[in-house]
Amino acid sequence: MLEVKNLHSGVEGVEILKGVDLTVKPGEVHAIMGPNGSGKSTFAQVLAGHPAYEVTGGSVTFEGKDLVEMDADERARAGIFLAFQYPVAIRGITNAYFLQSALNAVRKDQGLEELDTLDFAELLEKKLEMIGWDDSLIHRAVNDGFSGGEKKRNEILQLAVLEPKLAILDETDSGLDIDAVKEVAAAVNRFRSEDRAFIVVTHYERILNYFTPDHVHVLAGGKVVMSGDMKLALELEAKGYDWIAGEAAAVAG
């Protein structure tokens, strides 16, 4: 589904990703872990097509299409979703309206009929029921005055509505207490399926306890320095990231 080969990318001439490789198949959950400044969030932003990051080498293909050539909105409509670490507020636009616009943009692209307000309200109700949340967020302006927890929950609600093929969660657990992490992970679990893949970018393993990955990768110095399964995440939690530094040096050497 997603094929990342020797990806180099940076911002304003400073290289942050220095040759990342990653292969993601439908149905898989990949965790990307790493210390602060390792390039985890950059990787998430580059996959989503943030214009500030320039791809300077390597390739990224998604379902056979060259992602690097696609604009952020084209990638989104192709089925790539990024749950932001810092979701942005949009004044005066309700969440419901925003979501309806986004969903219709995607549907239109897929040649599906756009949903009117009533049909959309019905769909939204179903999704909320599915994740067990009330409708308190949907009539408020997008992320405007939301608490940290509300913003993260809102990202998951968007994921639920847009049903992407590949969802990238960028530190969705950061700033959340343990109950909120559980709640969010439980919601995301509902959308795990054979044809949907996840990339979970996180500093800590705790969210992975509730959302078990098939593969765990450690990013350090702009490269994947180690890959394994859940055991690797637990090892990291026990030993800390310093332990990786030596390994990274060995790879680089």
């Binding site: 097509g49 909105d73 989104a76 979701p87």
Partner: peptide
């Protein structure tokens, strides 16, 4: 970027942000 990441075109993204501002 946030709007575009959800699938909206650049024009629609600007229109959305500006309309919200004028609401």
């Amino acid at each position: 970027f946030y709007c575009k990441q959800r699938g909206l075109s650049e024009e629609d993204a600007v229109s959305l942000v500006v309309n919200g501002f004028c609401k």
